[in-house]
Amino acid sequence: MRIAIEGCMHGDLDKVYQTLKRIESQNGTKIDLLLCCGDFQAVRNERDMQSLNVPLKYREMKSFWKYYSGREIAPVPTIFIGGNHEASNYLWELYYGGYVAPNIYFLGFGGVIKFGNIRIGGLSGIYNARSYRTGHHERAPYNESTIRSVYHVREYDVLKLMQVEEPIDIFLSHDWPVGITDCGNWKQLARYKPHFEKEIQEKTLGSGPLTKFLALDKCLPRRKFFTGY
């Protein structure tokens, strides 16, 4: 099985699928699955854009609406999780996961599915300590506070994933797990993002709950982990 990984889609489905077609043509092969690690931006209409926590100048329809309306069909089965730039009102309708458009599947706020012989899990959103132990209280239309907290990871969703007994082959997250910078050149990262250095040294950069989840035996067999950041 050949799987393509997209960090953040940002609503540019047309461009991503065109790129995959070009890769298939150049390599004479077929891509079986596309995974997106958040910021998918499933914006159906202008009202959905009001739920996007982005500056007004970045609120664009892009191309998802074509796939939602049926004008276009995703040429590759697509599975995605939510990030921190989403049409949160629409994704909330599919809290437990489901198809947002033909051939495009949302894993939900925390979920696991099987594609072929591969088990794929994912956790949507980003970690925020203030919201972690609260309930999912946000409702559209969102205000300046809830438009952010709606995509914060909740303890309930992490604990739900911890109940999965069978091994997970691939896990998707928009967040970094704490300590991921130990696996790369964190000094170079700090040069690009100076405000990260203190968090790296204090081991607070990223999601602590995600780190604990990934340490469980169910995630160890193949260690395929993809993040949107």
Rank of each mutant, 00 (worst) to 15 (best):
residue 19 T to C: 10
residue 20 L to Q: 05
residue 21 K to R: 15
residue 22 R to I: 13
residue 23 I to D: 01
residue 23 I to N: 01
residue 24 E to N: 02
residue 25 S to N: 10
residue 26 Q to A: 14
residue 26 Q to M: 05
residue 26 Q to K: 12
residue 27 N to L: 15
residue 27 N to W: 12
residue 27 N to M: 10
residue 28 G to Y: 08
residue 30 K to A: 11
residue 32 D to R: 08
residue 34 L to P: 05
residue 35 L to F: 12
residue 35 L to G: 08
residue 39 D to H: 12
residue 39 D to P: 10
residue 41 Q to E: 15
residue 43 V to L: 13
residue 43 V to R: 09
residue 43 V to W: 05
residue 43 V to K: 04
residue 45 N to P: 12
residue 46 E to G: 14
residue 47 R to V: 14
residue 47 R to M: 13
residue 48 D to H: 15
residue 48 D to L: 07
residue 49 M to A: 13
residue 50 Q to E: 15
residue 50 Q to R: 14
residue 52 L to C: 14
residue 53 N to I: 06
residue 53 N to M: 06
residue 54 V to W: 08
residue 56 L to D: 06
residue 57 K to T: 13
residue 58 Y to I: 02
residue 62 K to V: 10
residue 64 F to S: 13
residue 67 Y to G: 02
residue 69 S to D: 11
residue 69 S to Q: 11
residue 70 G to E: 03
residue 73 I to Q: 09
residue 73 I to C: 07
residue 74 A to D: 02
residue 75 P to H: 01
residue 75 P to S: 05
residue 76 V to T: 04
residue 76 V to W: 01
residue 78 T to W: 00
residue 79 I to G: 05
residue 79 I to N: 04
residue 80 F to A: 00
residue 80 F to G: 03
residue 81 I to C: 01
residue 81 I to D: 04
residue 83 G to C: 06
residue 84 N to R: 03
residue 84 N to A: 11
residue 86 E to Y: 08
residue 87 A to E: 12
residue 88 S to N: 11
residue 88 S to T: 13
residue 89 N to H: 01
residue 96 Y to V: 03
residue 97 G to V: 05
residue 98 G to Y: 10
residue 99 Y to A: 04
residue 99 Y to L: 04
residue 100 V to F: 02
residue 102 P to M: 04
residue 107 L to T: 02
residue 108 G to F: 06
residue 109 F to V: 10
residue 109 F to R: 10
